[in-house]
Nucleic acid binder design. Structure first.
Length: 280
DNA sequence: TCGTGAGGGTTAACTCTGAG
DNA sequence: CTCAGAGTTAACCCTCACGA
């Protein structure tokens, strides 16, 4: 396994292993991008190039060439790259204190080169893993940002509902039932939920369900089976929603993910991983 | 047969306002 | 801070058609 460098251009370390780390609050993806049309994810997105820059268009605005870019949750965007692989990181906005994120997310004061190098180093480290370990959000945060990201303080009643959805995003939760469970009226629950999370209850649920698909992207079953497993009523609805969120039809996503290694849950332990955590 | 797209009706959810 | 009601919105669900 390779020892991680702490500085300098490390792009030569990154091989061709496609990898995705999945925790309930984070997705770290290194792999094919395809040619997505408009996409709109419910997570805070960070894209990082591995070699050549990519082009990004936010909310129908101007195209910009970038090596590193942040897209806020639920913002329509389009991304194009000629590079075979791209790195992307998704952070569930309700899981972090948005005012205490690393510089790259919060403002122009970020040292882009250093951040890019750190991300590339982290992915290079991930690529040295030769078995399927289990992942903890805390470990991955330390690897990528050098520290655990500060959690968001949410109203306990909203947090309880969010936690329930996090544990089973494929389930169906009516706002009415959730309100009753929280001891709130229907209208106040919806109001409080949006106030706390910044997103409407239904939108939140729809995103979590679309996100749950990621756990299945290297399966070879029929899409209808996967759609049903993820909680969609049929393949039509599945196809439509996934295309809206990821900008690609499910068939294309699954075709591009056949050789994707998926790491999930907890805890994750390798020599290189331990070294990088110790150095962080 | 399977995956996808489009259209239309239904209904749950959203937003706003006002009141206790 | 909480609740209730009314009007609006959009997600859901169903059906059908088309192409591979």
């Amino acid at each position: 396994m390779k020892q991680l460098n702490s500085a300098g251009d490390n792009r030569h370390h990154i091989g061709h292993q496609r990898i995705m780390l999945l925790t309930p609050d984070r997705v770290f993806y290194l792999g094919l991008l395809g040619a997505p049309s408009l996409r709109k994810c419910g997570a805070l997105m960070l894209y990082a190039s591995l070699d050549s820059p990519f082009s990004l268009c936010l909310d129908g605005g101007h195209w910009a060439q970038r090596e590193l870019a942040v897209v806020p949750p639920h913002v329509c965007h389009r991304i194009i790259t000629n590079a075979p692989m791209i790195a992307s990181i998704m952070i569930e906005p309700e899981s972090v204190n948005l005012t205490r994120l690393p510089d790259v997310f919060t403002g122009p004061s970020c040292d882009e080169t250093a951040t890019l190098n750190r991300i590339r180093e982290a992915y290079a480290c991930l690529q040295t893993i030769d078995y399927e370990p289990r992942v903890k959000t805390l470990d991955v945060d330390c690897l990528f940002w050098g520290r655990a990201l500060a959690p968001r303080a949410l109203d306990a009643r909203v947090a309880a509902i969010i936690n329930k959805i996090r544990h089973d995003p494929t389930g169906h939760y009516s706002a009415c039932a959730c309100a009753a469970e929280s001891g709130l009226s229907f209208s106040h629950f919806l109001h409080l939920f949006k106030q706390e999370t910044g997103v409407a209850f239904r939108k939140f649920q729809a995103w979590k369900r679309a996100r749950a698909m990621l756990y299945h992207v290297n399966r070879r079953d029929a899409l209808i089976d996967i759609a049903l497993d993820v909680g969609y009523p049929d393949s039509t609805h599945f196809s439509h929603t996934i295309r809206q969120v990821y900008g690609l039809p499910p068939r294309e996503i699954f075709a591009g993910s056949r050789h994707l290694m998926i790491l999930r849950q907890e805890p994750l332990r390798t020599d290189a991983w331990q070294r990088s955590l110790a150095a962080a």
